[in-house]
Computed example of a mutant assay.
Amino acid sequence: MSVDKFLTEKNINVRAMKSKMADIWRPARGINIKEIKTGLFLFQFYHKDDMQWVVKGGPWSFDGAILVFNTVGNGEDPTKVLLNEVEFWIQIYDLPVGYMSESIGKQLGNFFGTFVQYDSSNNKSIWREFMRIRIKVDVRRPLKRKKKICKKDKSDVIVHCKYEKLGDLCFVCGLLTHTERFCSKRSTAESESVNKEWGSWLRAPPRRAGGSSRSKWLREEDDGDWGNKIDGGTNNEKFSGFQKSDLVQRRDNSNQESAFFSFDGADTNNSEMAKLAMQASQSK
């Protein structure tokens, strides 16, 4: 069982929230959600694996509001359980070459929050754009955005942080507990223009893009046995719907077909090139 609250100044539609969270999580044994007082909920799972899946898959949000939760022990008063921390996967960009190790990740994790886990599976790419680590964030403090690193050659570099599954936050003070509209710092500012040091750029892009299915001709970096995957694991003449003779014929015609493509980005007159290729073909 866990006690939960949403970080928001808005009123939560409790009925909609219950259905939405249950539909997202789909616990095998079901879930019971009860509001014990305004804005504070008890989430009762009927199997420990269901609860662990939710804990590891967070953060979660409803209507943009981040969900903060903590476990409740036997005989413990749920209204007195601290709800001050939430875990995020973060992506750290602009790291120098040689600074992608787990030891560096622990140091950075303990700067941006409290280090929890290093994503070693993010190391498989031939080129890593960012380091990925999981941290615990204190929601009473502003989100950290960047850090200056001093390299061995005494030069400095600034690395930037993005948060996965980041919900609403205040662009004025950087807190997760409210949006700019409800920020007291903004309401007490003397000038109309308030400096916003946080923004939507703190949200990390989705790690898996949606859309149509991947082309079977597109290789990933770890597709070591790609040839067998394409021809179905057999050595016969059939090659994914084409005959090998078709591939040979295509290579023979590659010189003529290449006249229709520009690989250097130059502006070419395709219609004129098509006419020339047609005339050359008819003259044979």
Rank of each mutant, 00 (worst) to 15 (best):
E192Y: 11
R250C: 07
V139A: 01
D138R: 07
E257A: 15
Y118S: 06
V86K: 08
D23A: 13
D94M: 04
E220Q: 08
Y46W: 07
A22P: 08
L143I: 03
V55R: 15
F88M: 04
W217V: 02
K144T: 08
K48R: 10
E190K: 07
K152T: 05
A204D: 05
W60E: 02
P206G: 12
I33N: 05
P142C: 04
R140C: 05
S254L: 06
K20A: 15
Q52E: 08
K148V: 11
F88A: 06
K238N: 11
R208D: 06
R251E: 14
K136G: 12
D23S: 14
L42W: 03
T38I: 09
D156M: 15
S271R: 07
I31S: 10
T179V: 03
Y118W: 06
V86N: 00
F260S: 10
L95Q: 00
N235I: 10
F41S: 04
D223S: 04
R132E: 03
M1V: 14
A277D: 01
N110H: 06
K151W: 10
P59V: 02
H160G: 09
Y93K: 12
N269A: 11
M273C: 15
L67D: 05
S61E: 08
P59E: 03
V72R: 03
T79I: 11
V248E: 13
G30I: 01
K48N: 10
L42Y: 00
M273A: 12
Q256I: 01
S103A: 14
D49S: 14
N195P: 15
D49V: 15
F6V: 08
K216H: 10
H160V: 09
D222P: 13
Q91W: 09
D223V: 07
L169I: 12
D252F: 15
L7H: 00
D252G: 14
T79S: 03
P27K: 01
E192K: 14
L83S: 00
K106Y: 10
F242P: 12
L143W: 01
D156F: 10
S2H: 09
E87T: 10
R128C: 14
A280T: 03
W53P: 13
Q52C: 13
F112M: 00
N236T: 12
N270W: 11
Q107D: 02
G64Q: 07
R250H: 07
E272M: 13
C170L: 05
T71I: 10
N235C: 13
R145I: 11
A280R: 02
F6I: 04
V97G: 15
W127P: 14
K284E: 12
K20D: 15
S240T: 00
D77R: 11
S155I: 04
D50L: 14
A209P: 13
T234Y: 01
M273W: 14
G232Y: 00
G105I: 01
S258I: 04
V194Y: 05
Y93Q: 01
G113Q: 07
S61V: 08
L276S: 05
D63M: 14
I24D: 04
I158V: 14
K144A: 09
L166H: 06
D252E: 02
F112V: 02
W127T: 13
